[in-house]
């Protein structure tokens, strides 16, 4: 099974960079088995980057006060109905792509790393968030390897 891990975020925005951080750590660990991509852009870009694979694991920051990782099939995300002031949200991008493209992965999982609403982009990553990044790295590596082996 062709698997891609897509870490999403912005490299200059501390708390929004966690998806990229996890992807960076996984590049060597999964080399030769799974493609790992770092994506700084909107969700339409993401959709194009995961097209052509059988399975995709998206790693991204989510706004949440919880201290645990969120793992969810993309289809189980609520239909958000929400507009960004411009741009398009993840679920809508996937829905549109599912309707119009033939090569989107059958399996798309989201691993969300929760960041509190009070977090500032200028602040360094806290030890709690770094710990969650460690957990996400291990979890995504395990999931990606299982999927790549056909599981």
């Amino acid at each position: 099974m062709r698997v891609v891990v897509a870490g999403v975020g912005s490299s200059l925005h501390s708390y929004d960079s966690v998806g990229l951080l996890v992807a960076e750590r996984l590049k060597h660990r999964l080399a030769g088995k799974v493609d790992v991509k770092e994506i700084e852009g909107d969700y339409i870009t993401l959709v194009h980057e995961i097209a052509g694979y059988d399975a995709a694991i998206i790693v991204d920051a989510i706004l949440d006060e919880c201290s645990e990782l969120l793992v969810v099939h993309i289809e189980d995300l609520p239909a958000t109905n929400f507009y960004l002031t411009h741009g398009i949200d993840l679920r809508s991008a996937i829905d549109m792509a599912r309707a119009c493209m033939h090569d989107l992965p059958n399996i798309i999982l989201l691993v969300g790393i929760p960041i509190p609403a009070s977090a500032s982009c200028e602040m360094p990553l806290s030890s709690d968030i770094l710990k969650l990044c460690d957990e996400a790295t291990s979890l995504v590596a395990e999931m990606a390897e299982v999927l790549a082996d056909g599981g």
Binding site: V8, G9, S10, D16, G19, D60, A61, I62, L63, D64, C66, E68, L69, L70, V71, V72, D76, L77, P78, T80, F82, L84, D89, L90, L110, G112, C121, E135, S138, L139
Partner: peptide, 16 residues
């Protein structure tokens, strides 16, 4: 590894 149900939250890059 803690895994939980999804809740309605916007995904990332939303601030203020």
């Amino acid at each position: 590894m803690p895994i939980r149900e999804v809740v309605i939250k916007p995904i990332t890059r939303l601030e203020g």
